[in-house]
């Protein structure tokens, strides 16, 4: 390790290309990701505290945080339940067409959000396939908070399925058999043995779906109705401020949102690290 003394921050390797690849990757990362984020941050830090709070915590903005967070939590919870059932069926049962079902789960990843936005709005509007029967029952979905939840369920579903399915595959069959031999019934086995083992993956999937929902824009704005104080999500409010050329307010709201997202990213990394699993998580 002759060179180790000269560069203690890097372990010696005989492979070439370290300087070139690390240099290029760092430069590109800085230009595309870090520099623009820093530009936003510097704009925010040049505001006074009063300017910042007035822009980022006004009543209308607070209402948008509330509806965004609540709808995202509701959608992530619905996805945790149904995503779990879908993952369980895909891993444990073989039924006709399961391969197609498995493939279609990725649809929300692949379908552009504007397309999901307009089609969900059409389906759930008062004369749509689902909207019309629901309207007869007195339930309005499109242009209400429920509509936001529907759109967020759509885009969040694959996160839960793709995180939980590998964990179900990895379950130790012997533990399950042992529980069965000990005379524990199937439901108790599930609640006491399987669910605790799957909880970390489920938490991870829930958090990813939640994080994605917080920032979602395209699929929500068509179905939400976008009434201020009621169904106006934070992402849309940022766009509204931009269209009014109020860059300061847009940046202040964005800073609050970014702080939340980065906190969640750290939480996700922590869950993944604690799981110690090397499963590649869903995109």
């Amino acid at each position: 390790m002759g060179e180790a003394g000269a560069r203690t921050w890097k372990q010696y390797s005989i492979l070439p290309g370290f300087g070139l690849t690390l240099g290029y990757a760092s430069l590109y990362l800085s230009l595309i990701v870090l520099l623009p984020l820093a530009a936003l941050a510097s704009g925010v830090f040049s505001m006074t505290w009063e300017e910042f709070t007035r822009a980022a915590f006004s009543a209308r903005v607070m209402a948008s945080y509330r509806v965004t967070v609540l709808a995202s939590l509701a959608a992530a919870a619905i996805n945790a339940v149904f995503g779990f059932i879908v993952a369980w069926c895909l891993v444990r049962y073989r039924f006709p067409g399961w391969r197609i079902v498995d493939a279609i789960v990725d649809l929300p990843f692949a379908l552009p959000t504007a397309v999901s936005g307009i089609v969900l709005t059409t389906l759930y509007s008062p004369n749509g396939w689902f909207g019309a029967p629901l309207a007869k029952l007195g339930v309005k979905v499109a242009y209400t908070e429920l509509g936001i939840v529907v759109a967020l369920v759509f885009i969040g579903l694959p996160f839960v399925v793709r995180t939980v399915a590998p964990a179900i595959e990895d379950l130790d069959p012997e533990t399950e058999q042992a529980a069965g031999c000990l005379g524990v019934n199937r439901w108790q086995t599930f609640v006491r043995v399987l669910l605790p083992a799957l909880m970390p993956a489920l938490t991870s999937g829930f958090t990813m779906a939640f994080a994605r929902a917080l920032g979602e824009y395209g699929s929500v704005i068509f179905i939400a109705g976008n009434r201020p104080m009621k169904t106006e999500i934070t992402a849309l409010l940022i766009v509204t401020k931009l269209e009014q050329f109020d860059y300061q307010a847009a940046s202040a709201i964005a800073a609050v949102m970014l702080a939340g997202s980065f906190g969640l990213l750290m939480a996700i990394n922590y869950f993944e690290w604690r799981r110690g699993s090397r499963h590649r998580s869903a995109a």
Partner: peptide, 25 residues
């Protein structure tokens, strides 16, 4: 560095556009 690479996935698409306006508007 590995964490920083994932950063864009944690950023709302709307903010992804906004940061370029903040830099190059």
């Amino acid at each position: 560095l590995i964490t920083l690479i994932d950063l864009p996935f944690a950023v709302s698409p709307v903010i992804a556009g906004l940061i370029y306006i903040a830099l190059l508007g």
